[in-house]
Design a protein around this nucleic acid. Structure first.
Length: 357
RNA sequence: UGGGGUGUAGCCAAGCGGUAAGGCACGGGACUUUGACUCCCGGAUUCGUAGGUUCGAGCCCUGCCACCCCAG
């Protein structure tokens, strides 16, 4: 007996391969779709997309399902990458992968798959869904791999069309499944870097799109320390790439602020410098996956991917959500996402706009 | 060109005759579907330079060079 038709977004990695394998085994009518959303090659001229598509092909042949390739490079550029660049120009630090999920994987891609007759899409994300009475997004069972953070801006509508087959397993077990099923990517290295673009020397990569704009580096007291290459190449809390050595106490230097108007990068010394920490931030467009019952409540939050849950107090105002952390948080950065949790449930998330204190 | 001081890896800096600490920076790796953070590994056949003393010199002596300070 055939179950519903499902499209599996396949990257060429183990997680999506096992996702396809599991659904196939469960009797779903599935097909794999490989997305190519970035047309440029790496500086060394290699095109990992071709290798990845090769892997998708081999996996699909192995589990005997049809596969296709789609190109959303144009959509990715318009809806993710141009925004990504604009954010950097505005002195913020965007998270393209969160945007990519919202605009591409669970939008352009989802629409495309529905047009081909699929009733849902499956991906290899490590998270789970509770579909009783609406949808609740839950952390993956493997707490070390949980990727709910990246899905924090999805809507009920988007999540209701999603399936995460590996969310209930640990990465280790997923690899075991892959080996037992003899999937050719069973031992393939985990991929990192910006989704679809891959691992790059980040500053060099940005330099290709955002030309250098050298300026001064100063301490918050105004002492001149050196020159920077362009504010957009640095993010709050960053240490490497500053090229400051031998000054002051001998401790490491970190970026603690940016003055866009005067093109000054503020730096301070010492990993525990108070200027690196903050407790309160505001988010103007917060996405709640389910409407909260109260306008004030406490829960936990992550201010960056893989950060252990932090106790916070949330205040929902007319135009923004204020998050106050119980403990000082290191390098809370405008442009990055604050994601709220209640135990295993991801309540939603939004881009940090202002650091209040 | 009178006096004093300093010159050790990109920067800061130990070393006080016995065969070059450490920190920061930088590079590589690990971790990681953003950016970061963090962790691990890596560095001077050589101590401004040219000679000399010594079994042996970064450390002692002499010349030279450079920089700094005081005085003029």
């Amino acid at each position: 007996m055939q179950k519903g038709k499902i499209a599996v977004g396949m990257s060429g990695g183990v997680d999506s391969a096992v996702s396809a394998y599991l659904l196939k085994k469960q009797g779903f009518d599935i097909f794999g779709v490989f997305m190519k959303n970035w047309n440029e090659e790496t500086p060394d001229g290699e095109c990992t997309a071709a290798e990845d598509y090769d892997d998708v092909r081999r996996v699909c042949d192995k589990i005997d399902i049809p596969y296709y390739s789609v190109n959303f490079a144009k959509e990715y550029w318009q809806r993710v990458f141009s925004v990504f660049l604009d954010e950097y120009k505005a002195g913020r630090t965007p998270n393209p992968d969160v945007l990519c999920n919202k605009e591409i994987k669970f939008a352009a891609f989802l629409d495309f798959c529905r047009d081909t007759g699929a009733e849902a899409i499956a991906t290899g994300h490590y998270c789970r869904l509770d579909k009783n009475d609406g949808v609740r997004l839950l952390k993956g069972r493997d707490k070390n791999k949980d990727q709910s953070y990246f899905l924090c801006t999805l809507s009920q509508k988007q999540l209701s069309r999603a399936i995460f087959p590996v969310g209930g397993y640990t990465k280790q077990y997923v690899r075991e499944i892959a080996r037992e099923a003899e999937l050719p990517v069973a031992d393939k290295k985990n991929s990192t870097g910006i989704c679809f673009i891959g691992e790059r020397n980040f500053q060099k990569f940005l330099q290709a799109y955002l030309p250098a704009q050298p300026g001064e580096m100063r301490t918050t007291k105004g002492e001149y320390i050196g020159m920077h290459q362009g504010l957009m190449y640095y993010t709050l809390g960053q240490r490497r790439g500053l090229r400051i050595g031998g000054r002051g106490t001998g401790e490491r230097w970190f970026v603690v602020g940016k003055d866009l108007k005067n093109n000054i990068l503020y730096v301070e010394q010492g990993a525990d410098n108070p200027l690196l920490y903050s407790k309160v931030c505001a988010i103007n467009r917060f996405n709640f996956i389910n409407t909260p019952e109260a306008t004030e409540f406490s829960c936990t939050a992550k201010f960056r991917y893989r950060q252990p849950d932090q106790r916070v107090y949330v205040l929902i105002e007319k135009d923004s959500v204020i998050i106050e952390a119980e403990n000082p948080q290191r390098a809370v950065t405008p442009g990055q996402y604050a994601v709220l949790y209640n135990g295993d449930e991801c309540l939603g998330g939004g881009q940090i706009d202002i650091i209040l204190e």
